[in-house]
Design a protein around this nucleic acid. Structure first.
Lengths: 228, 228
DNA sequence: TCCGTCACCTGATGGGGCGTCAGAACTCAC
DNA sequence: GTGAGTTCTGACGCCCCATCAGGTGACGGA
């Protein structure tokens, strides 16, 4: 069972606070190699199962050797973790959509639809990393849980804030805003994760998208969505 | 990447259609060993990460040798797959809850609450297997996808059937019943999967349970849940 | 241009799991 | 008690892991 590493190391990942395993700060060549390894890790994750992901394959794919890989990452999980943090940063655009969207009336339903689209796109883009984040979190790995919390919690808080504005107007009563938003986010996340599965059993993504937007709209506003 | 095996072998798993890897039908002793290995696999899955799950550990834990493991299962995945099928059979009770529950009015909301409880319990019980089923499905493994489809599709169809009775009465319009039910199921599943995560970021399972039941009730009936 | 130094990379290695035999151990009917 | 059938395992060749000592390459200074 993987365990937490020192948290302090992951503070500043803007390609500067980077350390090699021996503590030195890598130069230009080193960072290029590191980056290539990171990209190759993502690529491998896309094409092979997590369980069968081998350091040697990543290293070979990046045109280098396993020892070099270990120079920059403690283990495969550490590399995936970095990909996860990159993904979490990328998710800011989703937060903005929630915060800046218009959630009232028909425009609100449109916002919900647009958000569903964007979220599904986001998930498809980061699918390989996300499934490892989810699995490892579920298995109790703290490093991954931190990433997962950070990215989903931002969305949840954004939804909760919107919900609270509706609750302040007397609408959408009877539920804790954070719990409600949490369930909402988790729903959207899992639908995005499995929309190909829906297709497989005969439910087109177009229909799923509408169902998803309806739940989102109702969940946030407490209003019935348009029945067009 | 794992691939599909011949499907025919998995038809009758009631402990009778069982074959050892050499094609013989095991006797009493053989089946006992097989069962012990299966249980040990489940136990191992509960305590170690999927990625670090080793045949040798399962075998040792079951007081036997790796060679014996391979006598009964082609690989670790095959064993987990059997656990998955067992789980799918166990899920019948959830289907019954949906089919036989009263979904109208306040009683409907109570049904939704009871279902949320039962589903969360079910997930907690089968958590280790479920996360492997989900991951492997996501990675494109057909064997696991079949299990996942079978178990979730039963629930989805049951919800869709209930939804359609409401739609026939002119309620809950504007959405495809199967897509709606699919999103619902997937939401419940993911909330159940991550309710510990909610606790971790300060949202008690009690609140989550209510939010979950409200979505379920609204999703099935199209009615606003009680705001008590 | 050459050289020293430091950054970067790798070949080689011990450790260990994988999957598969051949044959040992066990069981049970007679 | 015996033998045929069933079940189990020790041992093996293979490959991956993770590490280290030492080789290779880049770059600034003379």
């Amino acid at each position: 069972m993987p365990d937490a590493t020192s948290v302090d190391e992951n503070q500043d990942q803007d390609d500067e606070g980077v350390r090699a395993s021996d503590g030195r700060v890598p130069g230009r060549r080193g960072r290029a190699t590191r980056q290539k390894l990171l990209e190759q890790t993502a690529e491998m994750l896309r094409t092979t199962s997590y369980r069968d992901l081998k350091v040697i394959d990543i290293a070979r794919g990046a045109g280098t050797s396993p020892a070099t890989f270990y120079q920059y990452f403690g283990d495969v999980e550490a590399a995936i973790l970095l990909l996860g943090e990159e993904m979490a940063r990328d998710s800011e655009r989703l937060v903005h959509m929630i915060e800046e969207g218009d959630w009232g009336g028909d425009a609100g339903y449109e916002t919900a639809l647009a958000f569903a689209d964007e979220f599904i796109r986001f998930w498809d883009e980061h699918r390989p990393v996300l499934r490892v984040v989810d699995l490892s979190t579920d298995e109790g790995d703290r490093r991954f849980r931190n990433v997962r919390v950070r990215w989903l919690n931002n969305l949840t808080k954004a939804f909760a804030a919107v919900t609270e504005t509706f609750q302040a107007e007397g609408r959408n009563q009877g539920v804790d805003a954070m719990a409600n938003a949490g369930v909402l986010v988790t729903m959207i996340a899992n639908v995005a994760a499995h929309h190909y599965g829906f297709e497989y059993w005969g439910i087109p993504t177009a229909d799923v998208r509408i169902a998803l937007a309806r739940y989102t709209y109702w969940g946030v506003t407490g209003q019935q969505p348009p029945t067009s």
